[in-house]
Amino acid sequence: MTASLLVGQFLSGLTTSMFLFLIASGLSLVFGVMRVLNFAHGSFYMIGAYLAWQVVTWLHPVGEAFWPAALAAGLGVAVLGAVVERLLLRHLYGLDELYQLLFTYALVLILGDAAKYLWGTGQLSVHRPPVLDGGFQLVGNTVPYYNLFIIAVGPAIAITVGLVLSRTAAGRMLRAASADREMLDAMGANVGLIYTGMFAVSSFLAGLAGALITPMESIVPGMDVQVIVQAFIVVVIGGLGSFWGTFWGAMIYGQVLSFGILILPEFSLFSVFALMAVVLIVRPWGLFGRPIR
């Protein structure tokens, strides 16, 4: 194995990791703060991809229309998420977790059919923004600028969210909400608003991830279910509800997948599932999670 090969494969893994982190971060935040396992997170991601395609088509099929489209997709899905939380999910907080799971699963089916109705069953594609066309050479590998952009966006979001959680008043509220919701409520904080905001932020991240994937992957029905499985693996490896756990979970997932392919090309996904199995046996609460009392 040459250095060129190792670097190339490492960068592939890193691109995979950062995309998965973008998707899984919202899933992890909502579970950490609200204790809701949101199956429909992948559906929000899919809606984000379709919205980005729609806005790009409206504005201009080529050119830098991609950037406002990505932002619009994130914001559009954030609004959708807020509406879902306010009108529907809110009624299920006191109930058994099974009801929330059933509800978000129903949402997967509803949003899947809605996307099929609005955008049809055909495959769609969005071009790379021209400013990130091309790439540069690194030890014999071509690194596309767009991949580099994704590799930068992941840590940027991680650091931003990390800072908000640890340094701001809103972050304190969120941590308090995750620790003891009733107490926070009794102290006069508007927990309802915190939850809606949290769900909207998580939806924004899903929608943004969906939009940012479009220059690399086709938009097809079923992309929602495909991604949610991977996002769950990342969250489980990192530890349910641990934000930084999700970041490192994604990092590990990407590299294990990438080098797994190199070593055992005929068992491409085996390495990832094997990793999850090992983590679940050794540390059922995940690498960075805490055992549930």
Partner: peptide
């Protein structure tokens, strides 16, 4: 949909 690691492994 994630082909990147397969592609770089093949190019190597």
């Amino acid at each position: 949909a994630n082909f990147t690691p397969f592609i770089t492994a093949q190019m190597a």
